[in-house]
């Protein structure tokens, strides 16, 4: 009585023998259990670490021996002038990078549209293959390439600029605080443009060719065809990615900024994710946790907002 019976539509699971066997629904659950436990440990258990934001915790001393300080660390974010300025600076960098990212998210769209206008299929294939490679190397490697190409005394960029007479002596491009946002977004698209265009290229392939033929009969030129057929065909894809990037507005990720940061450019490169990392490494764990926690909460709120937006505009949720 207590155990639910196996559904009738599944008679084979009883097999030949009549002895009691574990119902399939639990058998499946037990097989998945070790993996569910792993998921719990590595994705859910860390949430318990939020408790450290309420203690005067220093690494090495057990939590039971550290004083409970309530909201001290949260208040400290906005407590004094210097701290305020620092947080505002970091927020400014975060907003700038995310906004630049959203504005330039039309790049892969343009890339896909223009590439699909190229008739020669081998040229298309080569472009697609080679421009996707940078996506698969780490940000450390990107930085290593940048380091060599832009090095002051023997990097190819400075050598050429000097030879052409644009500059007299090498510029240290990587150790400067000016234009860092633009440099970062440029590197980002160098790495991601080819890869980012793949989804749009697939969407363009999915467009009914008869639409183009019909438009041609009506005398539409290339730009009219792009505007009235190609663009509407890829707008749904663009919208989904746009909404996701709104959900990720304060999550810039740490990899790129970690790789490119140095003492010279720190003021402009420190986005929220990198800031959390840096203060943790200055051994201020509770403060880093507090900032981390606020970030997670805001980030989930943004995601729900983005999801609602998607439901209202497209009648479809993205999560």
């Amino acid at each position: 009585m207590a155990l639910p019976t196996t559904p009738i539509e599944n008679p084979k699971s009883f097999g030949a023998s009549k002895r009691w066997t574990l119902p399939n629904k639990y058998k499946l659950f037990l097989m998945a259990l070790p993996f569910l436990v792993t998921t719990f440990i590595f994705y859910y258990l860390p949430i318990s670490g939020w408790i450290y934001a309420f203690y005067d915790f220093t690494p090495g001393i057990p939590l039971s021996d550290t004083p409970y300080v309530g909201l001290k660390w949260f208040k400290s974010i906005a407590q004094n002038q210097t701290q305020m300025e620092e947080v505002l600076r970091v927020l400014k960098n975060t907003v700038a990078m995310s906004t630049l990212g959203i504005i330039t998210s039309v790049f892969p769209v343009a890339f896909a549209i223009l590439l699909s206008e190229i008739k020669s299929s081998w040229f298309r294939k080569i472009v697609q293959t080679l421009t996707t490679i940078p996506n698969f190397i780490s940000w450390i490697l990107v930085y290593a390439l940048a380091f060599t190409l832009f090095s002051v005394d023997n990097g190819v960029v400075n050598t050429i600029l000097i030879k052409l007479g644009f500059i007299d002596e090498g510029i240290n491009f990587l150790a400067t605080n000016s234009n860092i946002w633009l440099t970062m977004i440029a590197w980002y698209w160098w790495k991601s443009l080819g890869w980012g265009a793949i989804l749009y290229l697939a969407a363009i392939t999915g467009i009914d060719q008869e639409l183009y033929e019909a438009a041609e009969v009506d005398g539409a030129n290339r730009f009219r065809k792009i505007w009235h057929i190609t663009v509407p065909g890829i707008i749904p894809t663009f919208f989904v990615l746009l909404v996701l990037s709104i959900g990720n507005f304060i999550n810039n990720g740490v990899d790129q900024y970690f790789a490119f940061q140095n003492a010279m450019n720190k003021d402009s490169i420190e986005v929220l994710d990198l800031y959390v990392y840096n203060i943790a490494f200055a051994n201020n764990f509770p403060f880093a946790t507090a900032v981390s926690m606020l970030k997670s909460v805001v980030s989930v709120m943004l995601l729900f907002m983005a999801n609602t937006l998607s439901k209202v505009v497209r009648g479809e949720s993205i999560i």
Partner: peptide, 22 residues
């Protein structure tokens, strides 16, 4: 329930530091 529990982790993280402490 289990499947959702898994998918949600793609959109939510406890944060770098709580992860490190864990």
């Amino acid at each position: 329930v289990w499947y959702r529990m898994l998918i949600v982790t793609m959109y939510f993280s406890a944060g770098l530091i709580p992860w490190y402490i864990t």
